[in-house]
């Protein structure tokens, strides 16, 4: 998984994070360093397509308050206008005459917020727990591994439903609940990375220079585990978005917000007559999740060239 050439190529006596140092000398290994990883990513058409779709979605989320200033709940048009029927409502209107396009744009904000923050918290917790377990080993590893196993046993969506239902649905409880069910994935990955990296020469060098544990974990090992973590994080954003939309589809979303999942849920009542009400927000979910998965694959090829 990890680009092992980096630590080995730099002299073992100088345990500085090698990522930056190597970028200055791209001739030695053209695939190492952040700059060339970015170039490899840009050569992957699927990854670039994913990035473009994601940028459009992010633009939509940012533009929503300006383009649809009245918010997603404003009523004022005829109900059940089909997409393409009128230029004023390109994605149609729902049973109450609300603009579907406004809902999609405002929903993008919630989706992005939940996907990014849940991943941030999940990855942070997973990195800390996985790093401690993998770096120290022994009893700490045993106990933390049990904790990871325990969190991975119940079906994560059932656990998610239980936590959200008990904590009462709101954006913050949903974010934390998603982080609660996703951190074990990250922790397992980080633990495995740390277990193999802690045996490397550059860690030994850092230790012999008298670096503290925290500095070795965050300054020396973590930068080398980062490529794998970044790839997993991009896929986790996609998973978090899927979880959030499923929750709000099942009326376990924040009751005060319009989300893509809640739009599909309310459109379901008109599935036989106006199926576009469920179809349109679903396409938005698929595009966003697809873009993140494509980016994740592209990053994997760029950052872990040996994984294929």
């Amino acid at each position: 998984m990890i680009d092992e050439a980096r630590p080995d190529a730099s002299p073992a006596i100088a345990p500085t994070p090698p990522a930056g140092a190597q970028a200055a000398d791209p001739a030695a290994d053209p695939r190492s360093g952040r700059q060339s990883a970015w170039r490899i990513f840009l050569r992957n058409p699927a990854g670039v397509a994913g990035l473009l779709i994601l940028l459009i979605m992010a633009g939509l989320a940012l533009a929503a308050p300006y383009v649809y200033a009245e918010g997603p709940l404003a009523m004022g048009a005829m109900p059940f206008i089909w997409p393409g029927e009128g230029l004023a409502y390109p994605l149609g209107t729902d049973a109450l005459g609300r603009d579907v396009a406004a809902g999609v744009a405002w929903g993008a904000r919630v989706t992005m917020l939940v996907g990014l923050s849940a991943t941030f918290f999940g990855v942070s917790a997973g990195v800390i727990i996985g790093a401690v377990a993998g770096y120290f080993g022994g009893r700490a590893d045993m106990m933390l591994s049990k904790l990871i196993e325990f969190f991975q046993t119940p079906p994560s969506f059932v656990l998610l439903m239980v936590v959200v239902a008990i904590a009462q649905p709101s954006v913050s409880s949903i974010i934390l609940a998603i982080a609660l069910v996703t951190w074990p994935t990250v922790a397992r990955l980080v633990r495995a990375e740390f277990r193999s990296l802690r045996e490397k020469d550059f860690v030994l060098a850092a230790r012999s220079l008298g670096f503290g544990h925290a500095r070795i974990i965050f300054g020396e090992i973590l930068p080398n585990a980062l490529p794998a973590i970044i790839v997993t994080a991009s896929l986790l954003v996609a998973q978090s978005i899927l979880m959030e939309s499923a929750l709000s589809f099942m009326s376990l979303g924040d009751p005060n917000l319009v989300t893509w999942g809640s739009m599909i849920g309310s459109g379901r009542e008109h599935l036989f007559t106006a199926w576009f009400l469920s179809a349109v927000p679903g396409v938005a979910i698929v595009l966003t999740v697809l873009s993140l998965n494509l980016i994740g694959d592209g990053l994997n090829d760029a950052l872990n060239p040996r994984s294929e």
């Binding site: 499923a246 599909i264 599935l271 698929v286 999740v289």
Partner: peptide, 12 residues
């Protein structure tokens, strides 16, 4: 397929 929400493809 990997990116489809199950509940949505179910409805479709």
């Amino acid at each position: 397929f990997y990116s489809l929400p199950g509940f949505w493809i179910g409805l479709m």
